[in-house]
């Protein structure tokens, strides 16, 4: 019986084509006198033969067309960035640029405003650069600044112009967003 257990292992190995010549001889010899193992071997071979000979199945011609239509009605393969991802990147870039422009703009405006305020103040005891620094540092004291600014007609005109330009830029940005030239939300 113990020998038959070993033979079972040998049959399994035989099915996988892993038998050595010596093992094959042993298997053949055992099966020539043991009817049970001979039958077991035969059953295994019948099962494997049946599996090997199960026909390959055809899903039909219509399948290719269905798959191709499904795939190629969508975006092509090389576009591996989805439309949502692309919109996210565009939105991120717009935000990044906007914040950059805002920062740069505020610095430039500060410089110009500081320079002009220098003239407006008529505070010649301080130098040009010192005046800009003074304005940037103490600019929060708007009341005192405005008091001096509005004393000078040129500074007032400058400030009103900056205010108007800011409002116009903001309006243009909002209009662009609404006209969807920047981000098309329908395609998200």
């Amino acid at each position: 019986m113990n020998e038959c257990m070993n033979i079972y292992e040998l049959i399994q190995k035989e099915l996988d084509g892993e038998l050595t010549t010596k093992e094959m001889e042993l298997l053949d010899k055992h099966c020539s006198h043991c009817f049970a193992c001979q039958e077991l071997r035969q059953d295994f071979f019948q099962t494997i033969y049946g599996l090997n000979n199960l026909p390959e199945l055809d899903p039909g011609e219509a399948l290719i067309e269905t798959i191709m239509n499904t795939i190629y009605s969508k975006s092509p393969a090389q576009k591996n960035i989805s439309s949502k991802g692309l919109t996210g990147i565009v939105a991120g870039l717009v935000l990044f640029c906007s914040s950059g422009i805002f920062l740069l703009g505020s610095v430039i405006i500060s410089l110009i405003a500081g320079g002009l305020l220098y003239l407006g103040y008529e505070n010649f005891s301080l130098g040009f650069i010192e005046n800009i620094i003074y304005w940037l540092t103490y600019g929060y004291n708007l009341l005192s600044v405005f008091k001096h600014v509005f004393n000078n007609p040129y500074s007032s005109i400058f400030l009103v112009t900056v205010l108007l330009l800011s409002m116009v830029s903001f309006t243009i940005l909002v209009m662009l967003l609404y006209s969807r030239r920047i981000i098309n939300y329908e395609k998200v």
């Binding site: 390959e56 199945l57 055809d58 899903p59 399948l63 290719i64 798959i67 191709m68 795939i71």
Partner: peptide, 17 residues
């Protein structure tokens, strides 16, 4: 597109099986 169609033709039967 044709290359991908050829791949489907080659493998639709084994995959379906």
């Amino acid at each position: 597109k044709q290359a991908f169609e050829e791949l489907i033709k080659r493998y639709q039967k084994p995959v379906f099986t």
